[in-house]
Amino acid sequence: MTLRHESFLDLVRERGGYDSTAEAERAARVVLALLGAHLVGEVRARLAARLPEAYALILLNPLQSAEPLSPERFVRATAAWIEGATEQTATWDIGAVLSTVADTAGGDLLEEILLQLPGGYDLLFGRPRPT
């Protein structure tokens, strides 16, 4: 299932409690650019196929990452890329975007995504796993 651009942004905006679509757009772009640096191969391509085209392109042409970021470092990196953000607001932004991505991906693809990421990302996607 591919969400239309407006539908995806509406979900991010609603979940993030943003005042404007521009805020939701900024969060989506930064979080997907950082996420794309952590996913490879078929998993990244399959997720991109389910995202609106503008976000698929961001995911497929990510910011470069020398190593996989732990969830904590992912939050810090997001805060660094969003002007005026703190780690707390970045965590909120990440949750708004990644929970929307999780819904768009579906359960099976989300499991494959989480297998490519360091432990703890299940919480960032809003899908805590039993320990």
Rank of each mutant, 00 (worst) to 15 (best):
G106L: 08
D122F: 01
A80V: 01
E42D: 15
L9H: 07
S99M: 09
A22M: 11
T78R: 04
R73L: 12
A96L: 10
A77W: 00
A56T: 12
V75Q: 02
L35I: 05
V43W: 00
D10E: 14
A33C: 02
D108Q: 10
G16T: 07
P62D: 04
L32F: 09
R13H: 11
V12N: 07
E72L: 12
E53D: 12
L109G: 06
A27I: 09
L115V: 06
P128C: 06
A49R: 13
R76W: 07
T91F: 10
R15P: 04
A90M: 13
W92R: 15
R29A: 08
Q116E: 15
I82V: 14
G16Q: 12
L114T: 04
A90Y: 11
I113K: 00
H5L: 10
L39E: 02
L59H: 03
G107K: 10
Q116V: 00
L59M: 06
F74W: 04
L115P: 00
T86W: 09
L47I: 04
G95M: 10
A37W: 01
T89V: 11
R13P: 04
L115K: 04
P52F: 08
E83S: 11
R44V: 00
G36W: 04
V43Q: 02
D19Y: 07
A24N: 12
L123K: 10
Q116W: 08
A37I: 02
L115I: 01
L98S: 02
S99I: 07
L34N: 03
E112N: 10
V75D: 03
